[in-house]
Design a protein around this nucleic acid. Structure first.
Lengths: 203, 203, 203, 203
DNA sequence: ATTTAATCGAGACGGTACGTCGAGTCTTGTC
DNA sequence: GACAAGACTCGACGTACCGTCTCGATTAAAT
């Protein structure tokens, strides 16, 4: 889409009758991302984004509804190619890989910072919450379900409440990231998976 | 004018050298609580609190650093007597009671709404995050530990990583409350405990 | 809401790239003038002006530095067409006309009230004092000089310290207006001129 | 009055049933004076005076009605012994001495700064204006009248409108001090007197 | 010697206005 | 018709003083 339009290749156009400026769109998303990482969510202001992106406020308001709307866009942009779908033929291995990836994403990437900010804002604004769930959470849970689907396809897992299982595996990860702030190491996520695959809790 | 005031329990003093007005303090905390429940976190403004509490802005700034500071105070006030420490002599029963109580608190009480708002704000502000953890999370985890302590005192639980166990039990609850928004029913928390006490996940 | 506005002459614009809103400017100046006349200088607050003019505070701060700045603007607006330059061919007649006009201006016009307020504020603030002198006092003294210039052009007044003369004529007027508060009647100003043109003071 | 009370000699008392603390009174007047000279009239705040004088705000409000009230007190204290009443037996000499003294007082003394501030405030507040006239202006005009009284007693001055004369002599001085800001040198005041005693203005 | 009452310092109180920041809307001239 | 620019109204911010109000300590006259 970027290269499709002549006005977006090379020099930046200052308005034309052919639709929105792709360069402006990208500048806004990057500016929002940068501001979030540098100054936190409070630093993500429409005016700040406009100034940093060299874009008029009106252009932002024309295409986005709010700053969270921008962050959702930035997230879609950034998160789309991060995740893989492991398929090793072993449920445990797949789950371990999945949780490691999730933990890395949430704690060590710029997109993860966006997710945390949006998760925070979701606590304040039901509209954000709804979109956050339908856009991010659902996608993630779909990824969470893959290992179980693969296992089922292999004939394992006669019966299992997959949704509960995902809560049990992903829940502690989000809990540590958002609530306790403790690190989520590979050792930790591996332990979660090991435990889930039924090592005895009580001796 | 004195009796017209919401916070007017007894005679209201208007400042003296012995420190703050207790009635003003309570009026502020209640106003903040009310605004949060009625209009969400964005509706919790210092001016709004001052107006609703019939208090001068300066009085708020004198005693609190920010609106989150007020909410922490309100939380301390409200949450202190909510929780019980179940001790039935059975680990499973204690854990089930504990998780039910936690879920109810987070989803069905005004103080729970404050917690969710603070958890949200913690994602935006490291200072809030730190205080949230030291003030709320630590207390909660202490309550989470009680069932295990009782069990250990009874000689059960030869060996167990209690901290991991808490993550596994509380994590999914917070995850559903803050992230997926799905209800956390007694049946759900009971299932978490049952699973944790090692019903087989894989047939 | 648009038509409800006092300053709504024609269609009111709400900002554009070509600079300030003339209607807002006029509304501010009039509001400041009105507040000064009605409630005195203490009643001239930025918030009061903004409210009365139906203008945002920020708009005021964008174009004016202080309330005295506004009053200087209002004065320029109002005082510009008040004064005439008498030229009767007779020094005494010219001076009498000039002093009468000055006295009327200072004591009986809204712009005169502004001058008195600014003269007052000039005693408190050197910046105001400087501007007051360069903007108002200089202009007035120029008007004061006219009769003498005309006389000189006619060949009268072989030698005279004009500046001293102006002090002697205008000084008592300002002195009565600002200090003693006594009325400055035509009879009084005429007497000043008569005396100045050398009737004997001592018998 | 200062030495009259035992509690005011030496250490400062902290309240008793015999009336006000003289030391507090003096500290307030001095603090007000200092603040005026150092930071201008805007710097003369009740809180500032209280802090600088080491006095409670209530003590100020108990004995004074406003900050101008304090300045009037300070003025009375300071101005009382400044002026002399010249009596050389010569009207011109007396007037010259009087005007020189007036000019010095207004431009070169702390009390003169107070007078200028009060004159300024008198333009904003009719109550201040009234008090300023009855307390300061009247006293000054009385001093202005002395040379003429002495001359009349000597049999000079068969007929003269003394009030007009004072306006003509003092007016230009106040005019320069308050309005034009030009210096008022002995040469200048001497010229005023010389001219008044009827040197020809027009050749 | 104790009580009593006026004044002191301190400082918290409800307010008003300050000057600033950002939100979201509107308009204009350019491309 | 979208763009950069930027003026507009509006709401909230955090601060400074205002004038009012207790309070406990201080103090000397009256008991």
């Amino acid at each position: 889409m970027t290269t499709a339009h002549p006005a977006d290749t090379g020099r930046r156009h200052h308005g034309n009758r052919h639709g929105r400026s792709e360069s402006a769109r990208i500048a806004v998303l990057e500016a929002a991302d940068d501001l979030l990482v540098e100054h936190g969510f409070a630093g993500v202001t429409i005016e700040g984004i406009a100034a940093k992106a060299g874009v008029a406020k009106q252009t932002i308001y024309r295409w986005w509804e709010s700053r969270t709307d921008i962050l959702f866009d930035a997230l879609t942009q950034d998160a789309s190619e991060f995740f893989t779908v492991p398929d090793t033929g072993d449920l445990g291995a797949d789950l371990r890989a999945r949780l490691r990836e999730l933990a890395t994403f949430l704690t060590a990437t710029d997109a993860g910072a966006v997710v945390r900010a949006l998760a925070g804002q979701a606590q304040h604004d039901p509209v954000v919450a709804t979109r956050f769930r339908s856009e991010f959470v659902m996608t993630q849970r779909d990824l969470d379900r893959q290992p179980f689907r693969h296992a089922a396809a292999r004939g394992e897992l006669a019966s299992l409440d997959t949704e509960l299982a995902i809560d049990q595996l992903a829940g502690p990860v989000y809990y540590r990231v958002l609530i306790t702030g403790q690190p989520v190491t590979p050792a930790y996520t591996d332990a979660l998976v090991d435990y889930f695959l039924c090592w005895p809790a009580v001796s």
